[in-house]
Design a protein around this nucleic acid. Structure first.
Length: 386
DNA sequence: TCTGGGGTCCTAGGACCC
DNA sequence: TCTGGGGTCCTAGGACCC
């Protein structure tokens, strides 16, 4: 039997959640992203003005004073997200949460998938005050294209036929900048051109797409999710920096932030990578393997510092730093023998104090240097790890 | 789109082995 | 060993996504 896959995509999701909670903004040009200095989502009214995702906020303020700029509230969107997926699960257990506002669902065994799709749309709008667009198709790739055909509140079915042959291949899920440049070079512009290729000459991911575009299912709906593999925290500077102390301090802030995330999620990391990014977008990075899993910024800072000193170059302008924790394991899964050495208990206490008095009340001396004039806080000096 | 942040997966090629 | 063939494992970095 043929498979029937649904793809659901939130319409202007972040902004839609805000408007659901603050209806006075409905019908107005609204964007989110104030806290990140670039636009992360836009209402359709804002799109109509010509604004785009990733446009700098200062530019919006200057050129479009009529646009409301809100901060993103990721935790709030997560709640909407969970409720939205719960509604889809009323109709099937086979739901793959693909991102915060997208999912796939396998409706192969559902009696009337089109009716179900429309019902899901209706339920979500009535119960959550946001809208979604839905596509149906025999494969994930086709369902994903279908949901994008009409937006917002669109519904498109590719179960019986598609009309995608003249669509630019670069629009297809999985064909990115690099591949589309290469394909364009070979005069492969449309889906039709792509399908005319001999499959044997395509890379493996492209073969998958080649099949899926023709309704031959390769990609399964994965309704069980794997545990998280990595955690990152990266920040760009307000303007390029060359001062080593300042750049180091920014990196330490990122280390503290990513460690806090790890402890919140009850993770320790066995490995980490950090980078400093030059003004010219070059990544200078290093990878570190810990001999025991860590989520302690003092220990991690100690290891990163040595590599940072080796990598840092004078008279170079940098624009960002970041760190990714990798090979995550459940926290404290390793014998408590190591606890003293990794400051595990210390950070339990710090997390408790922070919870009571506000995050950031306790910082490491190296990341606090620039904030001394702001507000009183305890300063923790860089401890030694022996 | 002079360019933000957080993820996952794939693959070429080096290291090592028989 | 101036030098074959084949296999596995691992990693860095690229590519892609939202």
């Amino acid at each position: 039997m043929t498979s029937i896959i649904l793809h659901m995509d939130g319409d202007a999701f972040f902004v839609a959640c805000e408007i659901s909670l603050q209806p006075q903004y409905r019908g107005l040009p609204v964007v989110t992203g104030a806290e990140r200095s670039i636009i992360t989502a836009l209402s359709y009214e804002a799109k109509a003005l010509g604004l785009t995702r990733t446009m700098p906020v200062y530019q919006v303020k200057k050129q479009f004073p009529q646009v409301t700029i809100l901060s993103s509230n990721y935790d709030t969107y997560l709640i909407f997200s969970k409720r939205m997926f719960a509604i889809v699960r009323r109709y099937t257990d086979h739901v793959e949460e693909y991102s915060i506002d997208e999912c796939f669902a396998d409706l192969s065994h559902v009696t009337d998938p089109e009716v179900v799709a429309l019902q899901i749309q209706k339920d979500i709008e009535r119960e959550l005050g946001i809208t979604v667009s839905i596509g149906l198709g025999p494969t994930k790739v086709l369902a994903k294209i279908a949901s994008k055909q009409r937006k917002p509140k669109g519904f498109t079915s590719f179960l019986k036929e598609t009309n995608i042959l003249n669509m630019p291949i670069r629009k297809v899920w999985g064909i990115g900048r690099s591949a589309s440049a290469e394909l364009t070079g070979a005069s492969i512009i449309t889906v039709k051109d792509f399908l005319a290729q001999n499959r044997a000459y395509l890379s493996k991911p492209h073969q998958t797409i080649w099949y899926e575009l023709q309704g031959i299912k390769v990609l399964p709906v994965e309704s069980t999710s794997d545990p998280q593999q990595s955690l990152a925290h990266t920040r760009s500077f307000l303007y390029p920096l060359k001062d080593k102390e300042k750049i180091w301090s920014e990196l330490v802030k990122n280390i503290e932030a990513v460690c806090l995330k790890a402890r919140k999620g009850d993770f320790d990391a066995q490995e980490a990578s950090f980078f400093i990014k030059t003004k010219g977008f070059e990544y200078i990075s290093a990878h570190i393997v810990f001999d025991t899993p860590l989520s302690d910024p003092i220990a991690i800072t100690y290891f990163v510092k040595q590599r940072f000193d080796m990598l840092f170059q004078k008279n170079m302008l940098y624009r960002a730093t970041g760190i990714t924790l990798q090979k995550l394991v459940p926290r404290n899964s390793v014998a408590s023998l190591f606890e003293i050495r990794t400051n595990s208990k210390l950070f339990d206490v710090i997390d408790k104090i922070s919870h009571k008095h506000g995050e950031g009340i306790i910082k490491m001396a190296s990341s606090a240097k620039q904030d001394l004039d702001k507000r009183p806080m305890a300063i923790l000096s860089l401890g030694t790890v022996s």
